[in-house]
Nucleic acid binder design. Structure first.
Lengths: 102, 102
DNA sequence: TCCTAATACCTTGTTACGCATAGTATTATA
DNA sequence: TATAATACTATGCGTAACAAGGTATTAGGA
């Protein structure tokens, strides 16, 4: 997908995955890959941002001798999804405008 | 609208306005303002990019003693709109994914 | 007459963010 | 024993929105 179009989606995509239950970096990429391509160097900064903004909380747990950082969506995170779903109406209206002559 | 969501739309919005006929900076802002907020410091770099990418051509003409730079969409510019309208399907699919739990 | 708004263009600097590349380390598998 | 998979992180680049500021002319109202 076009990079600029993705920018409006990636944060919410990650939150949306976490709404199904806690997850961790590597798995989020795998789960999202069916719907949108997201690389590690894109996801981890997003997760950091989301954590700093209190849209997610984290816990670190050992799994097969390796540390895994689990991310859980917060109430604020769920609200952000809701806001997105409301804001998107404006997007659709502009889309209709662009499509008007076709 | 959310800045990140806008990023996928602004270029195509400008091209879309020009598809109705040639126009100039100030008027493009006015015409678009019904649909999307775009400031001068956002539009003029966009117009420059579009011109460099041959999506628009320009002519400068005097109007009431002032110079106006008119922008006209090219075939390549019209193609870019078409590509957007095709790409947007992916966007909608991701949108459906985000909306799935609601 | 003077001032403000409107018209019309442009540049600079800041900030945000996607992503390629690279680095580290462990476990599973062929 | 080597390679793929798992798992996380940091650095640097390029793109783009936008606030702020600058220049210049014309129109209209006080």
């Amino acid at each position: 997908m076009d990079v600029q179009l993705k920018r409006g989606l990636l944060d919410v995509c990650v939150l949306s995955v976490l709404k199904d239950g806690e997850s961790y970096g590597y798995k989020i990429i795998a789960d999202l890959s069916e719907h949108i391509v997201i690389s590690e160097s894109t996801l981890y900064p997003i997760l950091k941002r989301l954590e700093q903004g209190k849209f997610v909380t984290t816990r670190t747990a050992e799994h097969n001798g390796r540390l895994r950082k689990y991310y859980m969506i917060t109430q604020k995170g769920k609200q952000k999804i809701e806001e997105f779903l409301q804001d998107i109406d404006e997007f659709f209206k502009v889309y209709d405008f662009i499509r008007r002559q076709n």
